[in-house]
Structures are given as structure tokens and as C-alpha cells.
Simulated scan of single mutants.
Amino acid sequence: MRIAFAGKGGSGKTTLSALFTRYLAATGLPVVAIDADINQNLGAALGVEADALARVPPLGAHIREIKELLRGDNPRIGSADEMVKTTPPGRGSRLLDLSPDNPVHQRFGHPAAGATLMVTGPFEEDDLGVACYHSKIGAAELYLNHLVDRAGEYVVVDMTAGADSFASGLFTRFDVTFLVAEPTVRGVGVYRQYADYARDHGVAIKVVGNKVRDAEDVEFLREHVGDALAACFGQSRFVRAMEKGQHPPLERLEEDNVKTLAWMRDTVDATPKDWVAFTRQGVEFHLRNARAWAGRATGADLEAQVDPEFVMGPEKQAIA
């Protein structure tokens, strides 16, 4: 299952992404954590030392290598230069799983709190004025497009703050999106943006209140987000310690907040996996990009990359 953490800057989404990753990994199940935020802080929140993080190859800096790998023997894709971030898999594409043999994890992954951490990479000085951050997270989008995840396997993605992920089809690549919201006007504002954008795409958004002090805060959130409010994290010494760069053992997390994490996992596990919808949405956004800019940019017929008989799913990974 793929889980996105979104929210405004400062809402605590990175901290909760790391905490949920640690909670899932503590069960011994496969967990991948991807830092797709322009501010690359997930690794530090998972306790990875700065010198080790500096040695993790960023996905965004090796996107051509990733394209070459994922293209496989797909006859509809002439070269890596003809692939864009929305290019969907088809017959002959290299599909990925969460096994130890996953070549992307072997090349770009780093152990972190029992999970495998991958990073899209920071916004470099050379990028200023000539590139947008979506060029970095395009590698993560390609990875998710070609990933076959099964029950009991998790990919947690810390998204960039605000609603920037809606500039591409990335927001449709998840089974559940947890939107972290503080009980403030600005905190719930991002939810309204997400809800408006996602309404026509079947994206499941669950609001997780954070830094909630009392029943009045809960009522404020419920007033502004309604039934989308799924759970709340109360004031937490444990979370506060994480935000200060500390890494207390998970056993010290307050009981109520442990229950919230358990509910979040139950929610994810209970979400139906719809590979048909996943494939359809991927194709829709690819065609939209192809017609808007990508066809001209590559000089290729990107609409012809769509394999009309291909539906993503475990049986396709087994064949590949």
C-alpha cells in the first residue's frame, strides 16, 4: 500500500511520516520511505546521520538511469529520452516489487529505522531559475508507476508542502493520503485545496489533526473538514522530542498516540487496491502531459507509449 503525507509547512507531516514509518517497520514488514519534499528532512527524522545521508544517491539526479532500468524491453518506448515522469508501464517494462532484489532499492536505498529510505534530492543552487522541483520528484513518480506492492507492504512518501503535488499526476499514485492539519485556519486551508483538486479522481484523503490540545481544537478541525477528520495526535513529548532532532524509542510514545498509529495502519490495510483505476488514472495524466507539453519537448509520439491491453497488477509483475 502507498501512503502519502501532505500538509502545509510546519504542520508536522515529516515528523508523522517518520513516526508512521517507524511504527510500520517495527512489525517487521517491508517498508520504503521516500522523501519527496523540497526540504529534505525525512532521513534526519528517521535518525540517519548527516554524513550517511550525504552518501545516499538522490533519485532526481539519476533519473535517466532509472528510466533506462524501467523501460526494459517495452517496444513502445524507443529510448530513455522519450520517457517522461508520467510514462506508464506496458508489456516489456521492468516492474518493481518490495523484495530485496529490487534494483532501485539496491542502488538508491539506505537503511533507516528498519525501513528502506530513498530521497528525491534537494533543490540545488544550479536549479534556481531554470528548473522546478517537479523535475526532482518525477523519478519518484516513475518508481510508483512501475511498483507492484502487495498486502503487508508499505511505501510512505513525505510530500512537498502545500498542494504542489497536484501539478502532476503524482497525487493519484497513492492508496491513502494522510493530510496533517493543525487546528488553525491556515492548517485546514491546504485540506480545502486538496479536496477540491482530488474530488474528481477518487483520491482518498484522511485528515490527521496534529498538535491538538483539547476538545475545542478537535471541534475546530471537525467544523472545517467534516467527516474527513480521521484521527488526532495530542500534545506529545515524544513528537516534540522528534521535532528537536531526538529519536526516543517507540515504546515511549503515549498510549493514545499509539492507538492513532494503529488506526492509521488499519485504515490503510482496509483500503481496497484498485489496479484498474490506478492504470486508468496513470494513462489519463500521461496523455494530458503528452498533449500539453511533453510531446513537443521530446519530439516523440508519447501517446503511442500507452499499451491499451496492459493493466498494472501482481500478475503482470509475475510475468515480467
Rank of each mutant, 00 (worst) to 15 (best):
M1A: 08
R2S: 13
F5W: 15
K8I: 15
G9P: 12
S11C: 14
S11G: 11
G12Q: 08
F20P: 04
T21E: 15
R22W: 09
T27C: 00
L29I: 10
P30L: 10
Q40M: 13
N41K: 11
L42W: 13
G43K: 12
A45T: 02
G47E: 09
V48T: 12
E49F: 01
A50C: 03
A54R: 07
I63A: 10
E65G: 05
K67A: 08
K67N: 05
L69P: 03
L70D: 03
L70R: 05
R71C: 01
G72T: 12
G78V: 08
G78I: 02
S79C: 10
V84P: 00
T86R: 00
P88Y: 00
G90Y: 14
G90C: 10
L96T: 13
S99V: 04
D101R: 11
V104F: 12
H105Y: 12
F108T: 06
A112I: 06
G114L: 15
L117M: 12
M118C: 02
V119F: 01
D126H: 10
D126G: 13
G129W: 05
V130M: 04
V130P: 02
A131C: 08
C132T: 02
C132I: 03
Y133R: 09
H134K: 12
K136D: 00
A139S: 10
L142T: 00
L144G: 10
L144R: 07
N145Q: 09
R150D: 14
G152F: 03
T160C: 04
G162T: 06
S165I: 09
S168Y: 00
S168V: 07
F171L: 02
R173W: 14
V176D: 09
T177E: 10
T177Q: 14
F178S: 13
E182V: 11
P183C: 08
T184N: 11
V188G: 06
V188K: 04
V190G: 09
Q193Y: 07
Y194G: 10
D196P: 01
D200L: 03
I205N: 02
N210P: 07
D217H: 08
E219D: 10
E219M: 03
F220C: 03
E223L: 09
H224Y: 08
A231P: 03
F233H: 01
S236F: 09
S236D: 11
F238R: 00
V239G: 02
A241C: 03
M242C: 06
M242D: 04
M242W: 07
E243G: 14
K244P: 01
K244I: 03
Q246A: 15
P249Y: 01
R252A: 11
R252K: 08
L253H: 08
L253D: 11
E254K: 00
D256W: 02
D256P: 01
V258Y: 03
V258N: 04
K259P: 01
T260P: 04
T260Q: 07
L261M: 10
W263F: 15
W263P: 00
D266H: 13
T267D: 13
A270R: 08
T271L: 10
K273I: 09
A277M: 10
F278H: 14
R280P: 05
Q281N: 08
G282H: 05
H286F: 05
R288I: 05
R288N: 11
A297G: 01
Q305K: 07
V306F: 05
P308M: 13
P314I: 11
K316Q: 14
K316C: 07
